[in-house]
């Protein structure tokens, strides 16, 4: 297991997961959100080739009202 930070909170996931596997493990379902890893945008097309590492910071954002 490794420790990661998801939307500002520490949690643990299995080591060696790619982004697609990690978001499934973190119980994010469906579409309609975007993801950044350590402050850098990760496109959906690269989820499976991007590996999550110890202490990585993941931001998962979804649509909300805005001004």
């Amino acid at each position: 297991m490794i420790e990661v930070i998801v939307n500002g909170k520490r949690t643990t996931i299995a080591s060696g997961l790619n982004i697609k596997e990690a978001i499934t493990a973190l119980e994010y379902k469906g579409e309609g959100f975007a993801l950044a890893l350590n402050g850098t945008f990760v496109a959906i097309s690269t989820y499976e080739t991007t590996i999550v590492r110890e202490n990585d910071s993941i931001e998962i954002l979804a649509p909300v009202q805005g001004g």
């Binding site: 939307n7 500002g8 994010y28 954002l61 001004g67």
Partner: peptide, 12 residues
């Protein structure tokens, strides 16, 4: 105008 904010796990 719209925006993005953190989404909680399992929360749609």
């Amino acid at each position: 105008t719209v925006s993005l904010r953190r989404q909680a796990a399992g929360d749609t």
